[in-house]
């Protein structure tokens, strides 16, 4: 079944500033959307609203027609921060989230191997480099069975091998999910067909299709 995400007239006020003033767009399973915009145009705010981590000032996020109808644990979020526990090992981090997502622990090994993290599995997350943490964050998202994946500048900190892994992940999830990528470097996603959404003045405008 194709899921439908609909954003209706979404607005968000941070402090006394309206960051988003009526953003509307919609997407369906299979869509890959690249979200761009200047610094401070509200891209991260937008992702947090979609993730349900922040409450909109006005408007609604509809999932198949119902507000926040998406069941919990179905939204993957690769945020700017890796969202990991420093004093747990790589394996324990994955294990913890696998338990919460109700996933078999057997899935972890394959993912860690794929991300090149298997050799580090008994290391604490705090000693990992930025790029490695980013890979781990990606592995955590792929661990569950997301229907919507949000990426906040996922390419930063990744080496070329890491970038390749990320492109593979984006392509691999393409048919199953709606993916929204905030990125200043859409050229790194060459070869993937995506739609371009630009945030400016608190509103969203569709750009071209690549």
């Amino acid at each position: 079944m194709r899921d439908r995400l609909e954003i209706k007239n979404l607005s968000k006020k941070l402090g006394s500033r309206m960051v988003l003033r009526g953003v509307s767009f919609s997407a369906e399973t299979g869509d890959l959307i690249v979200l761009t915009g200047e610094n401070g145009s509200g891209k991260t705010t937008m992702l947090r609203l979609l993730a349900g981590l922040s409450r909109p000032t006005g408007g609604a996020v509809l999932w198949n027609g119902s507000p926040y109808g998406i069941e919990h644990g179905s939204i993957g979020y690769v945020a700017h921060q890796p969202m990991l526990y420093d004093n747990l090992t790589v394996w324990e981090n994955m294990q913890f989230f696998a338990n919460l997502y109700d996933r078999p622990l057997t899935a972890i090994e394959g993912l860690l191997r794929r991300m090149g993290l298997w050799v580090f599995r008994h290391e604490l997350a705090e000693i990992l480099s930025r790029g490695m943490q980013q890979r781990l964050a990606l592995a955590r998202v792929l661990l569950m069975d997301p229907k919507l994946i949000l990426y906040d500048e996922p390419f930063t900190g990744l080496d070329s091998a890491g970038q390749e892994l990320l492109r593979e992940a984006l392509a691999g999830q393409k048919q199953k999910t709606i993916q929204i990528v905030v990125s200043h470097t859409p050229h790194l996603m060459a070869g993937l067909s995506f739609r371009h959404l630009k945030l400016a003045d608190g509103k969203a405008h569709w750009g071209g299709v690549s």
């Binding site: 993730a51 989230f97 919460l100």
Partner: peptide
């Protein structure tokens, strides 16, 4: 403080219903 260190709390909240 542990939860906020790397914003792990966000991932946690998204996983918890």
């Amino acid at each position: 403080a542990r939860e906020k260190e790397r914003n792990a709390i966000d991932a946690l909240l998204m996983a918890l219903g």
